[in-house]
């Protein structure tokens, strides 16, 4: 079993239109490095100065990595990594 990485629409130009790609690695950093090997150019859109870009949210099994160890957050086979742009207000019917 591998790691499932979900790609937002805006970045699918790097993945030949694929919305889900296979990833590998033991941390989010390693998953993104592997992603860059397979889809050159994508890393620069996600990472800046060693951190996720301000308007990029990355989730491992639905939990925001900014609260679980950032790019060092551990991942394992069977985990799902979701990448999403930050959007306005979701909840409680703003």
């Amino acid at each position: 079993m591998a790691i499932e990485v979900r790609i937002p629409t805006i970045l699918r130009t790097y993945t030949d239109g694929e919305r889900v790609v296979e990833g590998s690695g033991s941390t989010v950093t390693e998953v993104i490095d592997q992603l860059e090997n397979d889809h050159a150019g994508i890393k620069e859109r996600l990472i800046e100065n060693g951190e996720a870009r301000r308007f990029v949210n990355i989730y491992v099994n639905d939990e925001d990595i900014r609260f679980t160890g950032n790019l060092g957050t551990p991942v394992a086979d069977g985990d799902t990594v979701v990448i999403l742009p930050a959007v306005a207000g979701g909840s409680a019917g703003v």
Binding site: T9, I10, F55, D64, V82, P85, A86, V87
Partner: peptide
């Protein structure tokens, strides 16, 4: 915090450099 995750339509046109954080 619980953040709703919407479908493609809501995120579709977002440019990663023009996100919104309250």
């Amino acid at each position: 915090a619980a953040e709703p995750r919407y479908g493609e339509l809501v995120y579709g046109l977002r440019n990663l450099d023009e996100g919104f954080i309250p």
